[in-house]
Design a protein around this nucleic acid. Structure first.
Length: 467
RNA sequence: GCUCCCAUAGUCUAGCGGUUAGGACGUCGCCCUCUCACGGCGAAAACACGGGUUCAAAUCCCGUUGGGAGCGCCA
């Protein structure tokens, strides 16, 4: 490698949303770019005109932005670089390293089927490579044709992978891949090599589903006489059934996690630790990740996505976040539920007393929505907690709160405790009716804080409905 | 089917020839307690199997088994 700054890229194909596996790969690239003062490049691999959509491009960009994975260059689009690819293809043709192929997709499919039936690896038989020059010229005029790279047969190709180690493949296993379709568009293995070279990529970090492609790409690098980048293939993320992660396993898109009330910091922390570790540390600030992340410490084996651990981590992050930060994040969730207007001071207070009780922003909303709207409890709950036994004491507490000064957590608590003393009932007996009456639920933040924030009037007003 | 990759508790992992195999999530129990959480204490739970190499193997080598990926005019 030269002494220039390292350059990394994330190169998704816009055929769907950004999933968490892609996000992790992007993050690893981002982390190293930041760690080494390098450049993080975003490249959209949209050469599949059939399946690429503008919506997917937008979804990917939105996800990257939400996660805070700012790229330094791009996004580049492969569809805007056809000229560069064609120059490279022409060069290969000129040097007899690539040749036209006239086989139809149907013919190729038949050959594949036969190979499979004979338990052979389906490898192109070079029918068109063997054509005579005159035959080639004649056929060229008859129908559109594709271009194949003539793959060398001798020796082994070795990928020096930072994560997987040396991976050796016999050149014989690699067949003559199509580098330009009959419609003139270049194919993946060609574009990725040309782009990585012309964009000066020094480190190719991608999913290990690309490991098998790497030897073919190395042949292309060699055919062009280009130096190799450093390769690192990060293992897949699997579902609980060890199958490749898909919709069946629940949410896989990055934005789905945002909608479920996850913090980007937690998602990223979970993702970085899935497949990588630093001693026994579980929680990292972004600065720590940048400082401590290394490819050498990435595990070579696939990881199973564990939603429970992500949820736990999200709770950790919610607990340690600044309340005003959480307030900014929570407000849209409240609005989405039609809860408006929201007094920002109440929101902040509500968050402060709920942070340690919730694990997502969605749960946060459930925990504090009663501050802004009246929740009518189930009749069953009213019957259960507002009994002939408790009602007198509930009334006494309300009476005690009426002229209470100062108005704070401890003074409110002492009103309750007085009644507990006199009644001989447990605090739960008296506090729980307040919880149900004020919040509409049996689960809520501490009741003294609830009353404190809700205020005398609302407390008395809501409780009176059930007495 | 062929080629490649992978293999420590249910899950993520530490370990890089000599450890009572460590941590985290989850699970279970106890404590704390106005609910729910948080927090504290404790428990159960792993080196896939078989051969080597070595005084010594979770660690190195080979095989088996299991899992994953690739084998497209997809990326």
């Amino acid at each position: 490698m030269t002494d220039t700054k390292p350059r990394f890229r994330f190169a998704p194909s816009p055929t769907g949303y950004l999933h968490i596996g892609g996000a992790r790969t992007a993050f690893y690239n981002y982390l190293l770019a930041r760690k080494w003062g390098g450049t993080f490049i975003l490249r959209i691999e949209d050469t599949d005109l059939e399946r690429s959509t503008p919506e997917s491009i937008q979804a990917i960009l939105d996800s990257m932005k939400w996660l805070g994975l700012e790229w330094d260059e791009g996004p580049y689009f492969q569809t805007q670089r056809f000229e560069i690819y064609n120059q490279h293809i022409e060069k290969l043709i000129l040097e007899k390293k690539a040749y036209p192929c006239f086989c139809t997709p149907q013919e190729l499919e038949a050959k594949r089927k036969q190979a499979h039936a004979e338990k052979r690896k389906p490898i192109y038989d070079r029918t068109c490579f063997k054509l005579s020059e005159s035959e080639v010229q004649k056929r060229k005029t008859e129908a559109p044709y594709c271009i194949r790279f003539h793959s060398p047969d001798e020796g082994d190709i070795v990928v020096h992978d930072v994560i997987k180690g040396d991976v050796r493949t016999a050149s014989r296993e690699l067949d003559d891949l199509i580098i330009r379709r009959a419609d003139g568009s270049p194919t993946y293995n060609l574009t990725v090599v040309v782009d990585d070279v012309t964009m000066g990529i020094t480190h190719v970090i991608r999913g290990d589903d690309h490991l098998n492609n790497t030897p073919r790409q190395i042949q292309l690098y060699q055919a062009f006489g280009y130096p190799l980048p450093i390769f690192a293939h990060v293992p897949m993320i699997l579902g609980a059934d060890k199958q490749r992660l898909s919709k069946r396993h629940g949410a896989t898109s990055v934005m789905a996690y945002q909608e479920m009330g996850y913090l980007k910091e937690a998602l990223l922390n979970y993702l970085v630790r899935l497949g990588w570790s630093f001693k026994d540390q579980e929680v990292f600030t972004r600065e720590e990740m940048i400082e401590k992340f290394s490819l050498e410490a990435v595990s070579p084996s696939a990881g199973i996505f564990n939603p429970e651990k992500l949820l736990w981590l999200n709770g950790v992050y919610i607990r340690q976040s600044q309340p005003d930060y959480l307030a900014d994040l929570t407000l849209p969730f409240l609005e989405k539920k039609g809860i408006t207007p929201v007094d920002p001071k109440i929101l902040l207070e509500g968050i402060k007393i709920s942070q340690e009780k919730v694990k997502t922003l969605v749960e946060m909303v459930e925990m504090i929505d009663f501050f802004f709207v009246k929740n009518r409890p189930d009749e069953k709950l009213i019957l259960k907690f507002f009994t002939e036994e408790t009602k007198p004491w509930i009334k006494e507490v309300i009476e005690g709160l009426k002229n209470l000064t100062p108005w704070n957590h401890d003074s409110i608590a002492s009103v309750f405790n007085d009644s507990v003393q006199k009644s001989g009932l447990g605090l739960g007996k008296i506090a729980q009716p307040f919880r149900v009456g004020l919040t509409g639920r049996t689960i809520s933040p501490g009741i003294f804080d609830v009353i404190r924030i809700l205020g005398k009037e609302k407390t008395a007003e809501r409780m009176s409905l059930y007495l």
